[in-house]
Design a protein around this nucleic acid. Sequence first.
DNA 1: GGGTTAACCTTTTTT
DNA 2: AGGTTAACCC
Length: 707
Amino acid sequence: MDVSHIFDPLNDAQREAVAAEPGPLLVLAGAGSGKTRVLTHRIAWLIEGHQVSPFAILAVTFTNKASREMRGRISELLDMPSSGIWMGTFHGLCHRLLRMHFEEAGLPQSFEILDSDDQYRLIRRVLRELDLDEAYWPPRQLQWMINNHKEEGRRPHHLPEGNDLQQQTLYKVYANYEELCQRFGLVDFAEILLRTLELLKNNQPLRETYQQRFQHVLVDEFQDTNSIQYQWLRLLAKQHNNFFAVGDDDQSIYGWRGARVENLLSFEKDFPGAQVIRLEQNYRSTGNILNAANAVISYNSDRMGKNLWTEESEGLPIRLYAAVNEVDEARFVVDQIQSWVEKGNRRDEVAILYRSNAQSRVFEEQLLSHGMPYRVYGGLRFFERAEIKDALAYLRLISNQNSDPAFERIVNLPTRGIGNKTLETIRGIAREDEISMWQATNKVIREESLPPRALSAVIRFIELIDQMSRDTQSLELAEITDHVLKTSGLLEHYQKEKGERAQGRVENLEELVNAARNFVVAEEEELDDLSLFLSNAALEAGEGQAEEWEDCVQLMSLHSAKGLEFPLVFLCGMEEGLFPHQRSLEESGRLEEERRLCYVGMTRAMQELYICYAEIRRLYGREHYTQASRFLTEVPKEYIEDIRSSNISRPIFRSSITNEESPLAKLQPGRHVRHQKFGEGMVDLVLRGRENMPVFRLTFLTLVPSG
DNA sequence: GGGTTAACCTTTTTT
DNA sequence: AGGTTAACCC
């Protein structure tokens, strides 16, 4: 059989990994070293070279995007569909298992997925029921703690029995929350993973079936696995012991949400006799960029160690720009992009990267005023928008009337005279009788235990939902959605709303009907289309749905840039406190993760890398004098070209300079001034600060302070 | 029940 | 600063 298409495009290390004998294998794949290629070619080789059935392969990724891409590449390589392979995200695959074995997992067939917003609301409800004050027990924090425990596999009864109020309250909230979820068949994201793990652990026949079935287990971005995910992988790979993990300890940037690099660091211990292969040739960046990134990451300890190299030429030096403030920074960046485009390059080859999403605004304003198209990644996803969640809540209620989160969301939207008083009564009964809000409402109606006005409003609501379920029985998914939007009054409600935003909301709702129309159910599934659509909406909140492939500048956080590459990259906001982020400086052990993030950012660049920082930055409405990021000092000078024209880098407020001839408000670049401390200087740039006060950047004739 | 004002919060993000 | 959310008033 001809396997040249599998092996020819590979270098020696890649080939070694792809063709490795069965057994545990860790591929340490540096940035830009072709890890996805190794993974896909490995799968192709298993199928074509070893005649492994696609059904015996389990391949796990972290994002739906990565999974789609891999699937595409494999079918290209094999020249046939790769549908047999169990490939997907941890959550996607576990969800599938839970759907197939809902009974064994102790779930109702119609169990629902809670996204983090639903989860937050539910936790607040628990707080209300326990009569706890949100001010003392912030729901966000409780949510975070509960998820942390779940991600470590701890159920409420595993928690240490603390004597302090803190521990006891956490326990109470967690236990109550779990009880509610269990009673109404609600499953949050962490639960999907934990429930699946427990299912396999406790159910021997099922466990053995899958252990037998999966002859090969492969995982991408292994450094990002959390404790539960790793246990799940190990359990499934146990029988055949063919565990193929690809990862890079230097790109572990999700420790803050439970990812454990330790899984990677202890791989050889956990899998005795494991092979480790390093992919160290980088095919992405120029020599300067790669060397600089290598230098920065070398400041970290606890690395597995890797030496990335490239055959590329040095390329251009990294350009460093010290901006006066964030506006100057943005202006500089956009200027550079403009000349990049004028040279005949594409805009979508350019990425503006930043540490936190709030930074995007200044860039957006600047891009907008230059009429340059751009796209911001991150921010609210389609299925997370309020109006979409409202519409989905109607659909959920039709599909499962006992869904309390859905009930609460839309019972009075649009308003139909069911106010808080009424709802409190219903909630009380639901809690008392341990029944759902829907059931409680029906009970209230039977017993007529509400004032007449509220009672009739409630009856109308129940009838509306009942009527909608009946009317949509035999309809297609898209027609159901359309029907629900119209008869619920939701569409009308948003149409009546005024303002620019309302327009977009109506469009989004219409887009939802489209999404429903385009939703294809893969293979035979035991569940109805509607339930599958709803699960999918939660699991795949959606990378923006329909993408206009316009030639746009790309704006995104450093986190979302992982896995991508761009010919021209701007790494912005390189300031202490912003990057590394203040919060990471306060917690010990987080600094190295920030440095890895910096490494990830730098290694996104293929040809040109600009690094910028602002000396004054407005943050949360306050102006801060900044200090350049420590990561900058970690880049050896030889790779950097400082392109700020002046040789002193402090912007000067007018209070500290004097000029005899003209009023300060009229100072223009080129004028000579005297600074109290630095002596003679020349105005280099004038900017407008707060209340339009001028801020000057000066070039000094001497560097010796005179005072 | 709707509209207005006051209080609050603010890292990164996938599922 | 800016945005959201909760409390408050008519």
